[in-house]
Every structure is written in structure tokens, then in C-alpha cells.
């Protein structure tokens, strides 16, 4: 038992006027302290598994840019379809009578780079947005 008001703490935890019972109890307490003998190892195994490391959150501006690019790529793809297929309602409703307008083929050829760009934007947006819009999708 340590003294109540000693600052700094004494070199020995015993009272200066410790009687034989104090000494006996301290002696017993010191010898009662148990060796580890696998206690810590068992305990550490019982701890819950560490939480998986969390990915760095994306900056807000980056997320906004990605959403913008995704919307832009969708608009471009819809516009492309509208341009090459005059019968757009037929395309959207999967009308059985739908067919590609042959007159639009030269324009399709001219729009190929734009189509590629739109496809790439869609893919890139999916890859970067996927984890926080639809985890596991990307």
C-alpha cells in the first residue's frame, strides 16, 4: 500500500512505519504476481480481427468532375443515337420495325471519334465512380 500524499513517490512503496503485516502482505503480493505463461498470446488471439484498411476518400471536386463526365457521356451517347437514327422513339421502345437509317451511315462514319470518346468517357466514369456509386461494380 502506497502512502497517500507523497510527491514525488517514494523509492519504496512501503510505509516508513510499516509493521510486520504490511511487509508480509507486500511480500505475498510480490510473489503472487503471475508469470505470463501464454496468457497474453491467448488473449491476443481472442481480439477481434483488425478492420480492413479503408481506401482514401476521393476529393469532393474529383467526385463532382466524375459525375459531370458521366452525365456528359450519357448525353453524348443519346445524342449520337438520336442523330444516326431518325426513328428515335422506335429505338428507345425497341419497336420491332426499327432499322438503321442507311442515309445516316456517312454521318456515323464522321462521328466515329465522337462515339469512341463517349464510350471511353462512360468506361472511365464507371471505373472511377463505381466504388462509391455502386461498390463492387467497378
Amino acid at each position: 500500500m502506497k502512502p497517500e500524499s507523497t510527491n514525488p513517490p517514494p523509492a519504496t512503496p512501503y510505509h516508513a512505519d510499516a509493521d510486520w503485516l504490511d511487509l508480509l502482505l507486500h511480500h505475498a503480493a510480490e510473489h503472487a504476481e503471475m508469470a505470463d505463461s501464454g496468457f497474453s498470446a491467448t488473449l491476443m488471439q481472442r481480439l477481434p480481427a483488425p478492420a480492413p484498411a479503408r481506401a482514401m476518400p476521393l476529393p469532393r471536386w474529383f467526385r463532382a468532375m466524375n459525375i459531370g463526365l458521366l452525365i456528359l457521356s450519357c448525353v453524348m451517347l443519346i445524342g449520337l443515337l438520336a442523330w444516326i437514327t431518325p426513328a428515335l422513339p422506335g429505338v428507345l421502345t425497341l419497336h420491332p420495325g426499327w432499322r438503321l437509317d442507311t442515309a445516316a451511315l456517312p454521318r456515323l462514319e464522321a462521328l466515329l471519334p465522337l462515339a469512341l470518346l463517349a464510350a471511353w468517357l462512360a468506361w472511365w466514369s464507371k471505373m472511377t465512380l463505381g466504388e462509391f456509386i455502386w461498390p463492387g461494380f467497378a
Partner: peptide, 15 residues
């Protein structure tokens, strides 16, 4: 660090 805390205090706590 937690293992260090356990090693330091387990003897007394168990006693």
C-alpha cells in the same frame, strides 16, 4: 502496444 499493456499488467490483474 496493446500486447505491451497486457504484458505489463496481466500479472497483477490475475493475482
Amino acid at each position: 502496444a496493446f500486447a505491451h499493456l497486457v504484458c505489463r499488467h496481466q500479472g497483477r490483474v490475475r493475482a
